[in-house]
Design a protein around this nucleic acid. Sequence first.
DNA 1: CGTACTTTTGAATCGCATCAAATCTGGTGG
DNA 2: CCACCAGATTTGATGCGATTCAAAAGTACG
Lengths: 224, 224
Amino acid sequence: MLATRVAWPYDPSHMDDLGAELDWTALLAMQPALGCIPHALRSSARQVKAEAGQVLFRVGDPVRQVFLVVAGEARLFRFSSNGTEVVLQRARGGFFAEASLDSRRYHCEAVASVASTLWAFPATLFRQRLEESAAFRRAWQSLLAQEIRRLRAQCERLSLNGAADRVIHYIECEGIDGEVMLHQSRKSWAAELGLSHEALYRTLRNMQHGGILHVNGARLALRQ
Amino acid sequence: MLATRVAWPYDPSHMDDLGAELDWTALLAMQPALGCIPHALRSSARQVKAEAGQVLFRVGDPVRQVFLVVAGEARLFRFSSNGTEVVLQRARGGFFAEASLDSRRYHCEAVASVASTLWAFPATLFRQRLEESAAFRRAWQSLLAQEIRRLRAQCERLSLNGAADRVIHYIECEGIDGEVMLHQSRKSWAAELGLSHEALYRTLRNMQHGGILHVNGARLALRQ
DNA sequence: CGTACTTTTGAATCGCATCAAATCTGGTGG
DNA sequence: CCACCAGATTTGATGCGATTCAAAAGTACG
């Protein structure tokens, strides 16, 4: 009962021959929280250009790297008993496998679902820095705590029935004072909200007509 | 533009006059991960019996306690600009406000939505132990990492369209080898899956008739 | 200028939420 | 022990809203 595995050959050495320069400042502007990462660790990161379908790691592989999605999407999943994929995370614009820092081996598969740009931090150095630097440790713990809060809010959002309710919840949680600046396409926002993109477009239109929402490009503001 | 606040008077001293003995072993059996908590911290926890609607803390209150839900449910929320509640977390059977350890003040409101039993750990001692003990720190980080993995999987589960898909995803992720033991009522499980309890009952029935699922009390097993 | 992707609207279908009600369960007190 | 009650479980009927399929227009990029 073998599963339909991705066609890509699994060759970790693929990731080593792409040593493009890293644009840290641009990334930092998008994700200010990354500022907590020490310089030594930062400069040891390697940029990885992954093609669509490329395997990043497999179940049981020793944890050598922690990843950061700069562009594209990585999909983490396990194979269920009947061979189908059970998606654990669709990482887009953030860390993944960072919770594997305290594991010796990966507990799931990771594949770039589209052509993606990733940063790979060496796990050993990451652990070492966490042990050495109390400041980095505190910042990292703060990052983890922030991620937990964000995820819990997202779970609550996804358990709302109405599309409009999810939009409102998102703006209230991720924005400031009923106003938010979208940093992604509406299509991918729809995926984050657990909606089809058509449903999101229609909901936004109806909310505008109803006077609940004001849209100005990437800027969304709740009225009243 | 005042919101419809809960009727309960906010009196923190309510929580101090209930010093029932703590049943640590029973709790540990339910949540083995709690074993990482040092004895000194464990014994400093106070049991809190909260009535339905009782306020546990408010936005801006100094972070004095980290909570663990033993029975019942705590609801964390913020008031949106138009006064409605935006639920950030419905904590049932686990920690909450533990991500506030690195904050000086709570960033949301917390109310027991039903009559609940909680444990309150003093935040100061918690932070202190985390600084002192490297073992506890590692265990705690491991607990946070585990929570992140769990939440990400739950988000993926909630973004699945079909009720049966969510059930399968749950069993594959939370169970072992396509088999899981439910530690809660099906009604509350339905809430966790983002479904109405009727939809869950019907789905379970259909899955049994379809031969996909085998149900034996609290034991659910996927077939094939 | 062509290609790939996003944005937008339409129509039809289907599944889940909702309301309603009956049964079953565990626990409490007379 | 039984009456009683609150809550969970289970089934039915109905309506709405999101998904899906389809297609057109807009947009970015090489």
